[in-house]
Nucleic acid binder design. Sequence first.
DNA 1: GCCAACGTTGGC
DNA 2: GCCAACGTTGGC
Length: 158
Amino acid sequence: MRHWLMKSEPATYSIDDLAKKNVPDMWEGCRNYTVRNFIRDQMSIGDLAFFYHSSCAMPGIVGIMEIVSEAFADPTQFDPKSHYFDPKSPLDNPRWFARNVSLVERWPTPVTLSDLRGEPLLAGMGVLQRGQRLSVMPVTDEEWKLVSQIGQAKSAAV
DNA sequence: GCCAACGTTGGC
DNA sequence: GCCAACGTTGGC
């Protein structure tokens, strides 16, 4: 099993939006080829991912999701009304892929970006690297364990 | 709103 | 295939 970090702007789609569904939801709208390859080729059903809130007052990891489907063509690329519409993506050879995800844990007390930066053992994490902008990226087993512990401890302490 | 970093586009 | 221009990301 692999581990991931997946970013979303909470103003667009937050962990509360996912929690409200009570069923798996589609992780859509990725429009970067590196991210596309992760989603299409590297993820597996059963993989776990951190849900990361970006571009907001308190950026950080707000919970855990599970990948629950194979990759499928992201329908928003074919929808002219969608913000994610891509007129150059051929119907018979889609450029962009999505997966369904389901909520595993929502952390009432997030592990903030500054929490992550404050932990020397996490200095190598992709999300902390200067200039990295991928909205989906792999997380090592060690990083996963440590961040999960921090997240669960912070949220249990409330 | 600023700006650094990076990906994508398109002219050549 | 090069590379400048442009657009986007995302923290601050």
